[in-house]
Computed example of a mutant assay.
Amino acid sequence: MKGASMGRGFTGWHMTGVMVAFFGVVIAVNMLMATEASRTFGGVVVENSYVASQRFNAWLGEARAQARLGWRAEAKEENDGELTVRLSGPAGPIDGALVAVEAEHPLGRLPGRAFTLQGTGGGRYAAPHALPPGRWRLRIEARSGARDARFEQDVRL
């Protein structure tokens, strides 16, 4: 009774099945990841890279001028859904500025919005219920007299 109690054992067909299953899982995961990546980021940072490259030095100059200005902007949620921006400079809070915000959802799932914030004093500017809850990328533009500054900040409301 040679081999009667033993099965066939591990054969070449078993190894083929293991290899096909392994690579099938790897390929399925890669396909899923590639699909999700292409759905959540379109890949466009600037519309025209040549024009952007021509403006690069001007952007650097604007950034240096803004750094010399010394303004800071801090955006956050206050009072249950109210978007606020606190604007300050080297001398303290900045009142009487025009503060505009462009908000976009980082993954593009919700439409972007643009609005102007109202000054409430003490360098605080607010827009009640301007955005639904979630994560937002804000482009803040502040102008006071002949001086202006631009900021970009991510917030969660």
Rank of each mutant, 00 (worst) to 15 (best):
Y125C: 05
R72D: 11
V26F: 12
G81R: 03
L131K: 01
G9D: 04
V155A: 00
A37M: 09
A114C: 07
H129R: 11
F56G: 05
A97D: 01
V29H: 11
G61S: 12
S5C: 07
F10G: 04
M31V: 13
M15Y: 14
V45Q: 07
H14R: 01
T40E: 10
G145K: 03
M19F: 15
W13N: 15
T16E: 13
V20P: 04
L110T: 09
M1D: 12
A114G: 13
M33L: 14
G108R: 07
Q66W: 06
L138C: 03
E47W: 04
G9A: 03
P111K: 10
V101K: 00
R147K: 14
E82L: 06
S53K: 10
P106K: 03
R150P: 00
W13M: 12
R137L: 08
E36T: 12
R156A: 13
T116P: 01
R113K: 15
Q153C: 02
A63M: 13
M33G: 07
R86M: 10
N30Y: 09
G61Y: 02
A146T: 10
A127N: 05
A91I: 05
G134L: 01
A103L: 00
I27F: 13
G81E: 02
A100W: 05
R135Y: 04
V44L: 09
R72N: 15
S144G: 09
R156G: 09
V99F: 01
V51F: 09
N48A: 07
G43C: 05
D154F: 10
R147G: 04
S38E: 14
N57H: 09
P132N: 06
Y125M: 01
G7Y: 00
G122P: 00
V99K: 01
G81H: 01
L157A: 06
F23C: 09
A67L: 13
A130V: 02
R124S: 08
L131R: 05
V45D: 08
M15H: 15
G12T: 11
